[in-house]
Every structure is written in structure tokens, then in C-alpha cells.
């Protein structure tokens, strides 16, 4: 079933963070705590789904030469809506993420999906693709956030887990920690999928 296939590919096989290495700026910048990664992922998911659907609907009316500026305006509109909506209904989360929400506009994952998928596929597939990519992005950011928070602050989602004798490795909540964690995770995931493909080819 194609609907399901378009959804599932974003979770692992074409995962935005671990497979395509897209949207690295928010991935590295906001994942110093699990909650920040999760909230950033969800906000990106919202913008990705809304803009992909709108772009898939209007794609035939937009001349090729102005498609990028048109897509960016659509994306920026949804980002601002998400920002205002969160400020009105979830002021606490909006306060934490404040600075990073406007930056969703320049997340190349969103423009990338609009350009590569939504602009030449039917609306229903664009919706499933955006959902899959968004969920894939969200779990990747949350995982990075959990690892960095545990090592850098000794807690997960603000709950202490490492006990009183644990000395936090401050570097993990600082920018270098983002690169170190992402690098190690990419290495592990690459080794894992390489092994899987070579085993599969033997049989």
C-alpha cells in the first residue's frame, strides 16, 4: 500500500536526521534537553504537514520560476501561525523554544520535502510523506535530547536519573556535545544498517 509506504520511509529508511542529514541546524542547536528536542520536533511536524498539504494543492497554479519564493512564503506563514498559537495557548512551551520557532522557516527539511515531494505528488501522498518525515525528525531530536540531557545534566525530561554522585559532563549540553553525540549515533546507525544489508545479500 503506497500510503503506508510514504509514511514509513521517513521513520527510518529515509530519516531526515540520521539518513539524509537534513535540518542539521535545529538538530544540533536545540537538543540539549529532551523536552526541547521533542517540542521542536512537534512544531516542525506541524509546519511540515500544513505546508506540504497546501503546496501539493496549489502546485499546478504556481509557475516554476517563482515556486521557491512561493513555498517559502507558505512555510513562513505556518511558522508564524504556530508561534502565535503556542504563545496564546501554550505560553510555557513557547517561552522555552521562543528563539528557535522562527528558525523553522529556514529548516531545509521543510523546503526540501516541498521541493522534492509535495510539488510533484498528489495531496494524500504529500500528507503521508510529511507525517512520516515529521515523526522521524521528532524521534531523532528527542533521542539526541535524551542522550545529551542524561550525560550533561543527569536527568531525562527534567527528572533526575543519575543519582547524586553523578558529575554531569557539561560538554554534552554545550554545542560540541551536539556534534559528538550526533557523530557517534550516525556511526552506530551506519554500522548497523551496513551489517544488515551485507547479511541480506548473502542469502
Amino acid at each position: 500500500m503506497r500510503m503506508w509506504k510514504e509514511f514509513i520511509k521517513g521513520l527510518w529508511k529515509e530519516n531526515a536526521v540520521f539518513r539524509q542529514l537534513m535540518g542539521m541546524c535545529p538538530t544540533l542547536a536545540v537538543t540539549n534537553a529532551a523536552i526541547n528536542g521533542l517540542a521542536m520536533g512537534l512544531a516542525t511536524l506541524f509546519v511540515l504537514v500544513c505546508s506540504s498539504v497546501i503546496i501539493a494543492i496549489v502546485k499546478n497554479y504556481i509557475p516554476d520560476k517563482v515556486r521557491i519564493p512561493s513555498f517559502i512564503v507558505v512555510i513562513a506563514t505556518f511558522v508564524t501561525i504556530a508561534d502565535l498559537f503556542m504563545a496564546a495557548f501554550f505560553p510555557d512551551i513557547q517561552k522555552v523554544l521562543g528563539l528557535f520557532i522562527p528558525l523553522i522557516v529556514v529548516n531545509c527539511l521543510i523546503l526540501g520535502r516541498a521541493e522534492a515531494f509535495a510539488s510533484n505528488n498528489p495531496v494524500k501522498y504529500a500528507l503521508m510523506d510529511a507525517l512520516g518525515m515529521g515523526v522521524g525528525f521528532t524521534w531523532a531530536l528527542t533521542l539526541l535530547g535524551i542522550i545529551r540531557e542524561v550525560l550533561g545534566m543527569g536527568s531525562i525530561f527534567g527528572i533526575e536519573v543519575m543519582g547524586v554522585n553523578f558529575t554531569p559532563w557539561i560538554i554534552f549540553i554545550l554545542p560540541p556535545g551536539a556534534f559528538i553525540t550526533l557523530g557517534i549515533l550516525l556511526g552506530i546507525f551506519n554500522a548497523f544498517s551496513k551489517k544488515k544489508t551485507s547479511e541480506a545479500s548473502c542469502h
Binding site: I62, K65, V66, T77, I81
Partner: peptide, 23 residues
């Protein structure tokens, strides 16, 4: 091109103005 961009901008502006008024 001009008309499409103008329309995209105008509709976005309207949507944003309404969201802002509401929130």
C-alpha cells in the same frame, strides 16, 4: 509570475492578520 506571487503574499498576509487578531 507577478500575479501568483502577489496572490500568495496577499493570502498569507490575510491569514496571518486574522490569526494575530484572534490570538
Amino acid at each position: 509570475m507577478v500575479v501568483v506571487l502577489l496572490l500568495v503574499g496577499a493570502i498569507s498576509g490575510l491569514v496571518l492578520a486574522l490569526t494575530f487578531k484572534w490570538t
